[in-house]
Each structure stands twice: as structure tokens, then as C-alpha cells.
């Protein structure tokens, strides 16, 4: 099978047209040198392979980010005695991080039945391997952490046992927080450390974007669930501010053909819309106190930009000139 130019579809049109009026104007097939190329590259074939990932992956990024950062918020909450907030956060972390994320991740595999092979080896030089371990360890902390927290807050056990549960809950929640931050940010590394020009050229931006988007989303989600405390609002401001900063950075730090997928075509729009939703727009809405709307905007933005970055990868990976440009 050849993903070549002229594509089969394009040729079908040409044939129809040729049959109708004997002449086929327009681009797509190049008569004047025949197949002699006028652009660098081999018949426009991709030089690197675009990602094979489908819709599950951006969703995973989205929920993984929320889960990880919820754990962070949870630990903040317990430290400062917002037990209900902590519980809600831990519930979110557990559901998103220990249930949704693994399911999405497995669904994306070419051979889901072999997903356990992920834990066959530990390779610090493979972001995918690290991710697998981070997700597992996060799950290993967040689930017992949630249980402990619930036991503690319902005072089911008393005495020393109660004390122990309290300490365990504390430790597990802080553990989840640590792995949570990594869970929310490693995805940036995952994309950043590849051969896809638009990705590796922005390898420092991606973790910041994904991590902060996760934090803001977690805060926003909690706010939507009715936890309207100023701490979350501040965090919301912080996340939106960072995202706005990234928007500026992205528009300044351009690499021409190499990362044009970020700035051109549909993919460019996805990135822009995403960044505007969880950057400037979120700030403005919060500023006017429209917190729920801000939260919704941010969550939407976080989702859209995740989708955006995967699409960017597909476009950039299929674009030979991007690869050449990134290496000159």
C-alpha cells in the first residue's frame, strides 16, 4: 500500500474529470517533468512515521492530568484540613487515574491482551516505560490512599489503629501527589522525546503545558463539583496564567516549516483554540467571577489542546519537509 501522491482518491476524481472533458487541470499530478520531483523528498513520502495513536490517547492525557493533579490538590487540602475537598479530590484521582486512564491506555494498544508486558522491564530511557510505572505506582498509592482517607474521615476505626490509618492516609496521599505530578507531566516527555519535529522542537513546553493543564483542570473540576474555595480559584488563576504565557511562547518560538503543523491548517487552530480557552479566556472569566464558566472553559481547552497536539504529531510526522527543516 502506498500513501503516495497522487492519492487513489485524487486519481478517481481525475479519471472522472478526464472522462468528462478530456482535460485535467489542477495540481496533484505533475506532467511537466513527469515524476521528476520539484520539492526535496521522495514523491512526498513521509520521512518519519506519524503516530498510530487514536482518540484514546488524548483522552488518557486529559484524565491522567486531572487524576495526577487532583492528588496534589488532595494533599494540599489534607494539610490545611479541608477534609471534604481532600476526599472529593482523591475520588477524582482514583476514578480518573486508577480506572479511566488504564482502560484508555489498554484500549489504545495494538494487542491489549499483552498490556502487562509494559511492566516486563523498567527502562528509564523510555518515557513510555516510565509512564507505565508511574501510572501503576500512582494507582498503587491513590486507591489505598482513598480507602484510608475514607476510613479515617468516617472514624470507623478508633485508637491506635485509627492513628495508624491517619498516618497511612497522609503518606499515601502525599505519595499519590508525587507520582501524580509525574503522571500529569510525563506525557509531555512522551511526545517530546520522539522523532516528530513539531513535538521534539517543543519538548520543554509540552510537560509544562500538560502538567499545568492538569492542575487547572483538577481545580476546575472540583470547583464545578461545588468546592468554591478561594485556594482553588487562585490555582485556577495560576494555571490559566501559565497557559497564557505558553500561548505567547508558542507564537514567539516558531521553527518555520519544521513545526508548521502547530501554526497552520486545522491542527494550528486546535492548538490556538485550546490555548485561548484555558489561557486568556479562563483568566478573564475568573476575573469577572464567572468561576464555573472559567472552569468549563479551562477543561474544554485542556481537552482540545491534547487532541490538538496528537493531531499536530500526525501532520508533522507525515510532512517530509518538516523533518528536513528540523535537521538543517
Amino acid at each position: 500500500m502506498t500513501g503516495n501522491t497522487p492519492s487513489e482518491k485524487r486519481l478517481e476524481e481525475l479519471r472522472e474529470q478526464a472522462w468528462k472533458d478530456g482535460v485535467v487541470p489542477g495540481k496533484g499530478v505533475d506532467v511537466a517533468g513527469g515524476p521528476i520531483p520539484h520539492k526535496p523528498g521522495y514523491y512526498g513520502q513521509a520521512v518519519v512515521k506519524p503516530p498510530v495513536w487514536t482518540w484514546q490517547v488524548p483522552l488518557y492525557f486529559f484524565f491522567g492530568g486531572i487524576a495526577g493533579m487532583s492528588a496534589v490538590l488532595a494533599s494540599g487540602a489534607v494539610l490545611f484540613h479541608h477534609v471534604d475537598l481532600a476526599r472529593a479530590a482523591m475520588w477524582i484521582a482514583a476514578i480518573a487515574g486508577a480506572i479511566l486512564s488504564p482502560i484508555l491506555l489498554i484500549m489504545d494498544l495494538g494487542r491489549p491482551r499483552l498490556f502487562l508486558n509494559m511492566l516486563r522491564v523498567f527502562k528509564h530511557r523510555s518515557a513510555m516505560s516510565m509512564g507505565a510505572w508511574i501510572l501503576s505506582l500512582f494507582g498503587a498509592c491513590v486507591v489505598p490512599g482513598l480507602v484510608a482517607l475514607e476510613l479515617h474521615s468516617h472514624h470507623i476505626l478508633a485508637g491506635t489503629l485509627g492513628q495508624l490509618i491517619r498516618i497511612a492516609a497522609g503518606l499515601l496521599i502525599f505519595g499519590s501527589a508525587i507520582f501524580g505530578t509525574l503522571l500529569a507531566t510525563y506525557t509531555g516527555v512522551l511526545l517530546g522525546a520522539t522523532a516528530i519535529p513539531a513535538w521534539f522542537l517543543h519538548r520543554t513546553l509540552l510537560p509544562i503545558h500538560f502538567g499545568t493543564a492538569g492542575l487547572g483542570s483538577a481545580a476546575g473540576l472540583l470547583e464545578l463539583l461545588g468546592h468554591r474555595i478561594s485556594a482553588l480559584n487562585v490555582i485556577g488563576f495560576y494555571a490559566a496564567a501559565v497557559e497564557s504565557a505558553l500561548l505567547i511562547w508558542l507564537s514567539v518560538n516558531k521553527h518555520g516549516a519544521a513545526d508548521r503543523a502547530i501554526h497552520e491548517h486545522g491542527t494550528g487552530w486546535l492548538i490556538r483554540i485550546g490555548e485561548i480557552l484555558n489561557g486568556p479566556l479562563a483568566i478573564v472569566l475568573r476575573f469577572f467571577g464567572l468561576v464555573p464558566f472559567a472552569a468549563i472553559a479551562f477543561l474544554l481547552g485542556a481537552l482540545v489542546s491534547r487532541v490538538g497536539w496528537i493531531m499536530v504529531g500526525k501532520v508533522s510526522g507525515s510532512d517530509p519537509e518538516a523533518v528536513f527543516a528540523s535537521q538543517r
Binding site: A46, K49, P51, D108, L109, G110, L190, T194, I196
Partner: peptide, 15 residues
């Protein structure tokens, strides 16, 4: 052994 995670695909500099 391969479970089809697809990460090698984007990690090969030669496609």
C-alpha cells in the same frame, strides 16, 4: 512480546 503500544513508531528517526 510486542503489545503494540506504538511508541517505537514515533521514535524511529528513519520512519
Amino acid at each position: 512480546v510486542c503489545n503494540g503500544c506504538g511508541y517505537c513508531v514515533v521514535s524511529c528517526p528513519f520512519g
